[in-house]
Amino acid sequence: DNCIQFTRHASDVLLNFNRLRSRNILTDVTILVNRQQFRAHKTVLMACSRLFYTIFTDSVKCNLSAISLDPKVDPEGFAVLLEFMYTSCLSLKDSLIVATLNTAIYLQMDHVVDTCHRFIKSRD
């Protein structure tokens, strides 16, 4: 019994999801963050964030085509996390670290929260 494991498969699939997002193909939700709009795929959002998982497993909310986040959420922090979801690359900058951390807490992305805390600690 042989299993041929394609080691790049997960990252190749994610790359294609990101291409679909950038070309707005089969994106099924708009996330509104302080008047800024982000198109995305519900399945990717809920696979990466416990908040989105809770929203989209709700039988009523799963049909929403637009979701408004708390007005306190920073659009730039959200953009960093959305990029991470589709690329596995978390771009942490000193100027955005607090916004990124607070948005990750809000989206319940626990591993990213831990990483932000470690990044802040390393800067002290």
Partner: peptide
């Protein structure tokens, strides 16, 4: 998988969707 002989394929696994049509 236990008892399965796993062979690693390092190359691309699927087609690449282009950035733009």
């Amino acid at each position: 998988y236990e008892g399965v002989n796993t062979i690693k394929e390092m190359g691309r696994s699927i087609h690449e969707i282009p950035r733009q049509e």
